[in-house]
Each structure stands twice: as C-alpha cells, then as structure tokens.
C-alpha cells in the first residue's frame, strides 16, 4: 500500500516542466507533461546521481543536466547509454488542486 504525500500545488509546475520535492530525506522529481498530466520519479539520475530537477523536460522525456542521459518520466524507462538503469516511478493523484505522490 502506498502512503500518499502532498508534494505541491498543481500550479506549482508549468506544463512540460519538472520541480524537485523532498520528503523524509528522499528526493523526488515531479513532472507535468505538455498534456497536463502529472508524474513522479526518483529525484536523481541512475547514472551519476545528478539532480533531475535541473534537467530539461521535452515531451515525455527528462534529460539529465550533466550527461544528457534520457528517461521517459511517464514510465521511468532509460533511453540508452549513458543511462542503463531505469528510473523508479511513483504513482500520482490529484486532489483539490494538490499533487500527491504515492511512496513506500
């Protein structure tokens, strides 16, 4: 069972963008797709642990700010070298204009 944590307001994230969220010492990245859907992944790249919230969101892709490793943030799928390990994803639900992510 997931524990739902309020991460941010819906309007805190621009479409096709990402913001950081920290809970209990763990970093997450919360995304809003160009279509207005919300997603959440682990906060750091699986390659060299760079913070993904400083990376560039283009369509459904987040690109690591340091080495340009790319992931599909809707599935966590790594797009190939230099990133070889998929990104962990977390369920998201919207309630009363607040984005909640399911952890645990």
């Amino acid at each position: 069972m997931s524990e739902w944590i309020a991460a941010c307001a819906v309007d805190d994230i621009d479409p096709e963008d990402v913001i950081p969220f920290r809970h209990d010492g763990v970093d997450y990245a919360v995304y809003r797709s160009p279509q207005g859907e919300f997603f959440a992944t682990a906060g750091h790249c699986t390659h060299e642990r760079m913070p993904l919230c400083d990376g560039l969101v283009m369509d459904n892709t987040i690109e690591c700010p340091k080495h340009n490793g790319r992931f599909d943030y809707t599935t966590g799928k790594a797009a190939g070298a230099p990133v070889l390990v998929d990104l962990r994803t977390f369920p998201v639900k919207i309630e009363d204009g607040t984005v909640h992510i399911g952890i645990g």
């Binding site: 760079m50 913070p51 400083d54 990376g55 560039l56 690109e63 700010p65 340091k66 340009n68």
Partner: peptide
Amino acid sequence: TESAAARDIRL
C-alpha cells in the same frame, strides 16, 4: 552552483 545553469545552456 552545481547544475543551476545546465538547463538554460542545454536550451
């Protein structure tokens, strides 16, 4: 500081 400028330079 760290990757603060990364996204703008990428764009």
